[in-house]
Amino acid sequence: MGEDMLAVEKLKEAFGGDIIQVTECAGQVAVIVRRDRIVDILRFLHDDGELLFDHLADLTAVDWSGKKTPRFEVVYNLFSIRYKRYLRIKAQVPEEDPRIDSVTCIWKTANWLERECYDMFGIIFEGHPDLRRLIMPEDWQGHPLRKDYPLFLEEDQEWPVYQEVKKKARELAVYDWYPMLLEKEKAEEAAQAEAEAQEAGHGTNA
């Protein structure tokens, strides 16, 4: 435990005013810092000879929608290969201005991790060389890992390309060797038309 706290002590020494909170959970230390100094703090941790957090194990974000006030937290899990220590740095990012500085200048691996974070949460990393969507298609609407993004989309909200593909698949079902899909659809259509006709009939009767 004492060794784990060394990094925190040194951080407090160097960036006393920028540290918001130090928490601990299951023996893992996390430091919440101010987001505008994130690059300096991480560079310090990366370069300092006694700490040497040279491995950016993970970079991600957490959406605390409805739980905490700065909605997003960008989480950096660092590991020092030489000293075999973990440290978690967190930076709070508010919803109305989801921006934070990119750490690609320290770790090249941050490039894709930040792109994914942007893709999934809509957090913009300032100074990133190539901030595009990574996993979702480029014309996707919304950021899926946000808590207000539904698990299932309604049919009319679906990705337009997917809608097109579905439409095409239905059209091309004529050429299928087993036109079950088509038959089923035809039956459904007929049933619907019938129902509509009946309804219309009721309407006139009434």
Binding site: A57, D58, T60, V75, K108, T109, N111, W112, L113, E116
Partner: peptide
């Protein structure tokens, strides 16, 4: 969050 090695390897 899943930190996947393949993801990072592809980025490299």
């Amino acid at each position: 969050r899943i930190r996947a090695p393949s993801f990072v390897h592809i980025s490299a």
